[in-house]
C-alpha cells in the first residue's frame, strides 16, 4: 500500500510537469489555432539556460528568472518570425515551420552544449514532508508548489484581469477583438511570453527531477503534449491540465505499479486514439 501511495505521488508530479509544458501548447492553439510543436524546443532551451545560469551563479532563483526571460524572448521570436508570416497559409504550413524550428533548436543545443547528458545537481529550496510513513521529497514538493502557483497565477489572469478578458476575446475572434480596440498582435505575443516562461520552469524542474539535461529531452514531450491537448479538447486550457494530470498518474500507476506490459509512452496515444474515436471534442472541448 505504501508503494501505491508513493507511486501516486510520483504520478501527480509527472502529471504536473506534463501540465506545465502542455499549458503553453493549449494557450497557443487557443489563440492562433496552430500546433506549436516547437514549444518542446523552448522547454529544452529552458532547461539548458537554467543550468547555465545555475552553474554561473549557483542561485536557482537567478537561473529560473534568467531562463524564463530568455525563453519568453525565444517564444515571441518564434511567433513573430515563423508563425506570423505563415498565418495566411493553411494550418499545416505553420505546423511544418514549427517542426523545423523544433529540429533546429535540438541541433543548436547539440552544437553548443554537446550531445552528452549534462547533470543538473541542484537542491530545490522546499521542505521535505513526512506523512504517515511516506516521505515527500523536496523535489516533489517543489513540483507541486510551483505547478499550483503557476496554475493559480494563470487562473487569476484569465478570470479577473482586463488582460485575461482581452486574451479570451482574441482567442475567439481576432478581427472583432481588434474592432474592440484590443491590440490582438500584442495579446498573441503576451500569450507566447506566458507559455514560454512556464515551459522554462518545466524544463528546469525536469532537469533537476531526473538530474539530466540533453538535446533531445524535448522529443518525447513534443508529441506527448500534442496528444494531451487533443485529449483535453483542442484549445481548452483546463482540459489540457486535467488530461496531463490524468496521464501522469495513469502512466505511473498502470505501468510502474500494476506492471502492464506496455511502453510507458504509448499510453498517451492510446488515450488520444480513444478520444478521437469516441469523443472527438476531447474532455472539455466544445464543438
Amino acid at each position: 500500500m505504501q508503494l501505491f501511495f508513493e507511486q501516486l505521488l510520483n504520478g501527480i508530479a509527472m502529471g504536473s510537469i506534463y501540465a506545465l509544458v502542455t499549458l503553453g501548447l493549449a494557450l497557443v492553439y487557443g489563440i492562433l489555432r496552430i500546433l506549436h510543436v516547437a514549444h518542446a524546443g523552448v522547454y529544452t532551451v529552458g532547461a539548458y539556460i537554467g543550468l547555465f545560469f545555475f552553474q554561473l551563479t549557483g542561485s536557482l532563483i537567478i537561473a529560473a528568472l534568467g531562463s524564463m526571460v530568455f525563453c519568453a524572448m525565444l517564444g515571441v521570436a518564434i511567433e513573430r518570425f515563423v508563425y506570423y508570416p505563415l498565418l495566411k497559409y493553411p494550418p499545416y504550413v505553420p505546423l511544418i515551420g514549427s517542426i523545423a524550428v523544433m529540429l533546429a533548436i535540438e541541433e543548436l543545443c547539440r552544437l553548443i552544449a554537446g550531445p552528452h547528458i549534462l547533470t543538473f545537481a541542484a537542491k530545490l529550496p522546499f521542505p521535505e514532508i513526512q506523512l504517515g510513513g511516506i516521505t515527500i521529497s523536496s523535489t516533489l514538493m517543489a513540483v507541486y508548489c510551483i505547478t499550483a502557483g503557476v496554475l493559480a497565477f494563470l487562473w487569476y489572469i484569465t478570470s479577473f484581469t482586463e488582460l485575461g478578458l482581452a486574451m479570451r476575446a482574441t482567442s475567439q475572434d481576432i478581427p472583432i477583438a481588434d474592432a474592440m480596440g484590443i491590440n490582438s498582435h500584442l495579446i498573441v505575443s503576451i500569450t507566447f511570453v506566458l507559455g514560454s516562461a512556464i515551459a522554462a520552469i518545466a524544463g528546469i524542474l525536469v532537469g533537476i527531477y531526473y538530474n539530466q539535461v540533453y538535446p533531445t529531452m524535448g522529443a518525447v514531450p513534443a508529441y506527448k503534449t500534442l496528444a494531451l491537448i487533443v485529449v483535453g479538447g483542442l484549445g481548452s486550457v483546463p482540459g489540457a491540465v486535467i488530461a496531463a494530470m490524468l496521464l501522469g498518474v495513469a502512466e505511473t500507476l498502470l505501468i510502474g505499479y500494476a506492471n502492464i506490459p506496455l511502453p510507458r509512452d504509448a499510453l498517451a496515444f492510446i488515450a488520444m486514439i480513444g478520444v478521437l474515436m469516441w469523443r472527438s471534442e476531447g474532455l472539455l472541448g466544445s464543438r
Partner: peptide, 8 residues
C-alpha cells in the same frame, strides 16, 4: 470587452 478600450 469593449469597455476595456480605456485600459488596453
Amino acid at each position: 470587452v469593449a469597455k476595456g478600450i480605456t485600459k488596453y
